[in-house]
Amino acid sequence: MAFVTEEFRVKAEKICAKYPKRDAALIPLLQELQKESGYVAEEAMDELARFLDLPYSRVKAVVTFYTMFNREPAGKYHLQVCRNISCHMAGAPGLLARLRSKLGITEGETTRDGLFTLSAVECLGACGAAPVMQVNDEYFEKLDESKLDALLEDLKHGKYPLKG
């Protein structure tokens, strides 16, 4: 049990108590597991299925349905550029192209040093501040090329106080 540790179990029971049925805690518990290791490993799904007494297929179905679950380790900084209509009009395609060329990766890939993962995502619900990029849990709004460059430099040098 590398993922569902004793410490995790204590936390998990508290989360389960919020619901009249334990399996309703499946998504919050997957989120906890992802917080620990940056992604949801196959073994983690297996261990969680046993913990909640659910078939493995149910857990895997949920993990593959929702876009926020990473099934592979993500970089230290997960750059998620919104590409929906308002961000598109405000220049999201240019930001994505710039990130691709500066980082040498395309959407869905991680840089070799493990620092950055790049994703194009759908509406982040911050259209008034378009174009928007989410980095891990934080939103960066009204971006342009120079702001993007400065942010990348800050992240590379660990200057930005992001939660891991």
């Binding site: 399996d23 998504i27 179905a61 349905f65 929702y66 876009t67 926020m68």
Partner: peptide
């Protein structure tokens, strides 16, 4: 209760499915 990335969960019955720990 935090969602996990699926536009469809804004539809009320998909939201209920998701809240119960299923695909939305």
């Amino acid at each position: 209760h935090r969602g996990a990335g699926a536009y469809i969960c804004g539809e009320e019955t998909a939201l209920l499915e998701s809240l119960e720990g299923f695909k939305g």
